[in-house]
Design a protein around this nucleic acid. Sequence first.
DNA 1: CGAATTTGACCGGCGC
DNA 2: GCGCCGGTCAAATTCG
Length: 524
Amino acid sequence: MENQDRREFTFLGSGGGGRGNNNDFLRGGPHTKLMMIKEVDFFSNSTSESARNNNNKPHDDELHDETAVKDIGSSTHQVSDPAGVNTGLNLHTPSSGMLKSAYDQEKPNTELIRLRGELDRLHDENGKLRGMLDQITKSYSELQGQLLMAMQKQAQEYHQGQKVEPSGMSSQTIAAQQIMDPRPLTALDVNDPSVSDDNKTQELSVSLSNTMEVMSKERDRHMIKVPRKQTCTEDGLDQSSQSWGSPKSPKLDEAKGEEQAPEVPFRKARVSVRARSDAPLISDGCQWRKYGQKMAKGNPCPRAYYRCTMAVGCPVRKQVQRCAEDKTILTTTYEGNHNHPLPPAATSMANTTSAAAAMLLSGSTTSKEALTSSGFFPSSMPYVSTMATLSASAPFPTITLDLTQSPSCNPMQLLHRIPSPSATFPLPLHGVPPQLLGHPMYFPPKLPAPQVLGQRHSHTSMVETVTAAIASDPNFTAALAAAISTIMRAPRSNDGSTNPTNGVPAGLPGSPQLPQSCTTFSTN
DNA sequence: CGAATTTGACCGGCGC
DNA sequence: GCGCCGGTCAAATTCG
């Protein structure tokens, strides 16, 4: 209960776990406790007795005890009553005295035998589970390989197709689908449109997370094959990887040692969320532990560093910093992919960042060239410049979702501020295109759960709104992908800015008001 | 007293 | 090579 309370408290944004991640895990909850009780029950009668008084004791204990009595009864050939309850009446039979002593002597033995049998059974079960795990791992590896091949093939085909097909909305849609569709071979089942209840939604988000990891792994493999320094973009990605995966960190070193752990490759893109908040943190449903704070250059406000502590070794980190110009604006930069299931309150933000990061990374590898070399940027560019900021001046790709322009935080107002490039443009919360219902990036927009209070509620609302917008709007994703590709492809000058005259197809609406090399989408 | 935060030190990357 | 800067670590401190 105390643990629960603490968890609840930290969920509201007051910070992460203990000094060590292992402690975080062990502090964790009923699961750990249950396992411990089970072990005690199997190996120690006396402890089992004491554990029985524990309120948290699982019902298994009583069942075991009951069956133990039954076993004893059968092994001593005593007859229990028809209901299967040993009433002790057998003690009054003519040989009751002998039987009683035999009972007393045999009780430990039979108990031991029973426990051994139970142990054997558990061993068998364990073996079966191991086998299943091996099989799943094998399938996973196979799927990864297939996915990689499929993605490469798609990119090639699309590239060829673009040389024939003129630019336009159709190509835009295709390109967007290529960028946005990570699921040719995995997680197909979870995209069933019929999946709609809350539990399924949770599973869905988890599966997306896993899918993303598959993607990231494949991308990483792909990038390994590509000669380094081939493009400035990939160079930049490598840098970002270095900068976030601290070579000093023992944990990350271990992860790297394990044949490029899945989370490492994904730590290449950042997703920033700008929102107005007086609170020091925006509640995003995750548990965070603050591990550092620094004064960043050019900003009087310190930058705080947080690490996700919801699972051991979760690679997700975030930076929180107030805007120098407007201190009511809080910029939260997420990086990495959660390696654990998320609570419902956290899935929206995680999905948003995952989707944005996936788009960044997708654009940087397979589809980038296809998109940028084919006049992909049509008249939708004005729409592009309404939602997010994409920075190429940083050594790593960063996408910023700007939620500060929606003071009322009314989802519909926010959506209405999005200029629609076409009359058929669907409102994300209402008209979800059928093809998106099965899309891995699409999550049925769930309106904010009452998990946060006051201002935080409104920010969660905004987050979910943006998530819904990103997830459900093919035009936005396509346009965003286009913008990302532009930035990625455009060569950088020495000061880190892109050259607008190079690498951007003619006729592309620029971003005249952009600072430096940013293509800007803003919410107003 | 344990958990969470603070903060100075340290490290690597990068530009000059 | 040196200094700056961003990011991380971990001992010290604070908090509940």
